[in-house]
């Protein structure tokens, strides 16, 4: 076994499960995720001399995975970039007020209803988020990457990471609120009881 192969095996291959989980959340398809993982590791192996030892290998693999995914969805990317560029609000303004919290605080001030929601439903709602928001939430909340690492993977400024993350979380909260009302975990808003 060559030194390069040994390094790759020790540093990159242990992240295969994490890359698969990320690919699955990106593509919403086990078959597509398998292809993505294969392409990611193939490209990583061929470019191993470009990897800087000591940096976070998982982030580097996610970057490759994201690029492979976007290239396979070129047309969608153009649409998403236009969507993202058209509205990039100030992250601190997004943090200042959360309309989902404002809307539910009379019915459940501390968001206890979230605890009644099963994992599958959370993942389903996550999979239904627009792709750019989904990637930010998955990398931050499921993969524990820092803002700086998410920015590197998505190739966007940190401010954009915050905006996408905060907006993505609000969309996810809204979806979970709707589900909680539907399942009876949270009372319907006043005036909506009949619907």
């Amino acid at each position: 076994m060559t030194e390069s192969s040994a390094d790759f095996e020790a540093e990159a291959l242990p992240h295969l499960d994490a890359v698969y989980s990320f690919a699955l959340r990106l593509s919403n398809s086990e078959e597509a995720a398998a292809d993505l993982v294969q392409d990611t590791f193939l490209r990583a192996y061929r470019s191993w001399d470009q990897y800087t030892p000591g940096t976070r290998c998982k982030s580097w693999l996610f970057t490759i995975c994201r690029n492979v995914f976007l290239r396979s969805r070129e047309r969608d990317r153009r649409r998403d970039e236009i969507l993202a560029e058209s509205a990039e609000p100030d992250p601190r303004a997004l943090s200042r007020e959360n309309p989902v919290f404002m809307e539910t605080r009379e019915r459940d001030p501390e968001g206890s209803f979230f605890r009644s929601i099963v994992d599958d439903r959370v993942l389903q709602a996550l999979d239904e988020l627009p792709k750019e928001f989904r990637m930010a939430v998955v990398l931050s909340d499921l993969e524990d990457l820092s803002y700086e690492e998410v920015a590197q993977v998505l190739d966007v400024p940190i401010g954009t990471v915050k905006s996408r993350l905060f907006r993505g979380r609000q969309l996810l909260q809204k979806a979970l609120v709707d589900y909680a009302v539907q399942e009876g975990y949270l009372p319907a808003p006043p005036g909506d009881e009949e619907s």
């Binding site: 206890s112 994992d119 499921l142």
Partner: peptide
């Protein structure tokens, strides 16, 4: 608001699957 945001985070992080490939 703090409790609301924390409860949300707990449910999202709890949905993490240590799902092997």
């Amino acid at each position: 608001r703090l409790q609301f945001e924390k409860a949300f985070r707990e449910v999202v992080r709890g949905a993490r699957r240590g799902r092997p490939a």
